[in-house]
């Protein structure tokens, strides 16, 4: 059986491990420490943990003030609340002054399945990507999460880190050398490239294996950093495979599909299909069933690949 874990759990563990070697960061929480897993850090470092209650706008403003005074804040809540309730606080008081803050949020995409659309962040990456100075990341498994959190701490500037509520398979091993802004090649091929982000990696790899069995030569790129996008990897894939499918647990408007489309259209127009949520709200239900109903399953990815190849 494959090992699985939620990336929010990996985030909680990362904070704990990094907290022991770096004394300069603090963690702010909005009453969901048990869920975002910041409680692991809170227990060991109570003097560096700030419980701000159900008041996200103030939580982000306080974090900005702490960053202005030299601390590195990790600010946790759910992705919907960070990206929409506290959006202007992030935009004007963090990104505009280019503060060294880490917005680390759980419940990305459809992973909070049965909580329903109020808690499913399907627009957050598009919102965050449009803000100047912002780096936007969704790691693809627990191991990458730990490395991404460490890389964000190392980097000087605002970073949006998006995690899953539900368990997703462990795909990477500890030898992974994570770098912000870099894509990771999983399969080499030349008929089509599947570019994926975050929790969609395992579904994309599943689809790729089936396509390979059909005799299609498939390249798979994992693109955990949405911004800055690894344009070099996208354009190399465009040149060498001539067709691209993007796969994201997010609306198809403004996220990975849009970022790749912008890069292709301006540099090397080739056929592209976007797998993602089709400009609609989802509903309550188990995460894997939602992926099937809203067009994000392995079979949807396979269909998009076959279609995009036919457009070459």
């Amino acid at each position: 059986m494959r090992q699985e874990m939620t990336t929010r759990e990996a985030y909680g563990q990362a904070l704990l491990e990094l907290g022991r070697i770096n004394e300069n960061f603090v963690v702010l929480e909005a009453d969901i420490a048990k869920s975002t897993r910041t409680e692991l850090f809170a227990k060991e470092f109570p003097e560096r943990f700030f419980q701000m209650g159900i008041a996200e706008q103030n939580e982000f403003g306080v974090a900005a003030g702490m960053a202005m005074s030299g601390k590195i804040p990790f600010i946790s809540t759910y992705a919907v609340f960070a990206s929409m309730r506290a959006l202007e606080q992030i935009r004007t008081f963090m990104a505009y002054p280019n503060l060294n803050v880490k917005i680390a949020v759980s419940h990305g995409g459809l992973t909070p399945g049965n909580d329903g659309p109020t808690h499913q962040a399907i627009e957050d990456m598009a919102i965050m990507r449009s803000i100047p100075n912002m780096t936007v990341v969704m790691p693809s498994d627990g191991i990458m999460t730990k490395k991404a959190v460490a890389a964000a701490l190392e980097y000087n500037g605002p970073v949006y880190l998006r995690f899953t509520r539900d368990e997703i398979p462990i795909i990477y091993d500890n030898n992974l050398e994570f770098k912000l802004g870099r894509a990771f090649l999983h399969m080499e091929g030349n008929d089509v490239t599947l570019i994926t982000i975050g929790d969609m990696l395992s579904h994309t790899l599943h689809a790729a294996r089936i396509l390979v069995e059909e005799g299609i030569s498939v390249r798979v790129l994992d693109m955990p950093t949405l911004k800055p996008l690894d344009q070099e990897a996208v354009l190399l894939a465009a040149q060498e495979t001539g067709a691209i499918v993007t796969v994201e647990d997010h609306t198809i408007l403004g996220g990975l599909g849009s970022a790749v489309a912008e890069t292709l259209v301006e540099n090397m127009p080739i056929p592209l299909k976007r797998v993602g949520i089709k400009d609609t709200f989802a509903e309550s239900g188990p995460y894997h069933q939602l992926l099937k109903k809203y067009g994000l399953s392995s079979s949807h990815i396979q269909a998009a690949a076959r279609q995009v190849i036919s457009m070459k």
């Binding site: 700030f50 103030n58 403003g61 306080v62 003030g65 202005m68 004007t92 008081f93």
Partner: peptide, 30 residues
């Protein structure tokens, strides 16, 4: 704040400066 020496915080969108002050004050206490 990044353009003007002596300015301790960017501001302009109302309602937010007191939170920033709370953050600075917390660091002062820490």
């Amino acid at each position: 704040m990044n353009k003007l020496p002596g300015l301790d915080s960017t501001s302009g969108s109302l309602g937010q400066g007191l939170s920033v002050g709370v953050g600075m004050a917390l660091v002062g206490k820490m």
